[in-house]
Amino acid sequence: MPKVQFTGQLQRFMAVPMAEAEGATVRAVLDNVLRDNARLRGYVLDEQGALRKHMTVFVNGRMLTDRAGLSDAVAPGDEVYVLQALSGG
């Protein structure tokens, strides 16, 4: 089952332990992880389900390409990292 790890910066707001979830795409994996956690979902995805502008996802070290659809493939045993992109100010 894919493993999902969230940026440590989210610990400021809520507990975000590493999770495992079924799914063959980033969308499916995140939907499973976030299904019962609307608050965390709102920190990672916008209201249309797209990845927030300054967030990013890596699957086994490869950056996600489909930021709106999250259709990038995930295989069992993959590691999914949900991170903040760097921004200035």
Partner: peptide
């Protein structure tokens, strides 16, 4: 900057803040 729009509320002059749902559009 990273995590989007949030709304917080305090009923005790800022000693404790509670996060409330932020305004959000329905699905397009």
């Amino acid at each position: 900057g990273h995590f989007g729009v949030k709304l917080w509320m305090t009923a005790d002059d800022g000693n404790t803040w509670l996060e409330r749902p932020a305004p959000a559009f329905p699905p397009k």
